[in-house]
Design a binder for these strands. Structure first.
Lengths: 81, 81, 81, 81
DNA sequence: ACACAAAGTTCGCGTC
DNA sequence: GACGCGAACTTTGTGT
């Protein structure tokens, strides 16, 4: 099997290293988020609902309204609304 | 319909705010990672292969722990430990 | 290292085999479901909304109402409703 | 608000019905799997270890495919194939 | 009841 | 823009 050139080898190592570094940082922040939710839960908040709020605020309002309209149409057709 | 007291309301806003802040940071880092892959692609690397490498390096330690866990717990289950 | 008795060995093989068989059947059905959604999509339906309907019909109405109430409270407190 | 025509309404009900049927079958099989593990547990097997074995057997082929994919695509990326 | 682990589901990206 | 792949999130089960 062929060998990698020295330059490519160094490049490869560097890429992997940089990716793993940012992923480690992401992991830290993700843990921070978990801690916030845990604290909120300790203060009596419903975590599931909190996550729903965050998700809704991320969505584009127009897109959201459109999805809602489709869902309503289907719900109505199914006799669920 | 149930109302939140002024304190809870502030707490709620604070929680959402903190979560959105960490998620913004996560987004930044996630974009950084994408950029690294973009650059690597520009240098002739196959991004899919790079991601596979990163994933495998992450799984290797887990895999090793799993192997040991199997031996331990399974031997125990069979009454040999 | 200890050896498994012949009986236990056969039992073990049987267990693994039976589990893998049911998992194969589950996979088949899961693929069938995907096909149904794919066909629905081809007929102009919004798959995301369809899945929402299915999920809602699975939920206990009382539980659902309770979750809705909490969410409404939070939404109101955040000035989103 | 938008209404569904009679045909679409019937189509919709049919889709939901078919999905719920396959999901019911999936649920049955999933329960079967649980029963197998319950029975195994009654015979002295460690369920967690059994699940680990099943999971590893599932991952092994993936892993092998991954190894080959790495070689192929990575060599290609490095201009060696 | 809580925390941790695993399964299943959903979302987004790159590809064709 | 349809599709498949891989990652992220949600939810369910389990052990403490």
């Amino acid at each position: 099997m062929s060998e990698l050139g020295a330059n490519s080898k160094e490049q490869l190592k560097s890429i992997i290293d940089r990716v793993e570094n940012v992923e480690a940082e992401i992991k830290t922040l993700s843990d921070d988020r978990s801690d916030i939710y845990k604290e909120a839960h300790g203060n009596g908040f419903d975590v599931k609902a909190l996550k729903t709020i965050v998700r809704m605020r991320k969505q584009d309002p127009d897109k959201r309204a459109e999805q809602e309209a489709i869902l309503d149409t289907y719900l109505h057709a199914m006799g669920m609304a």
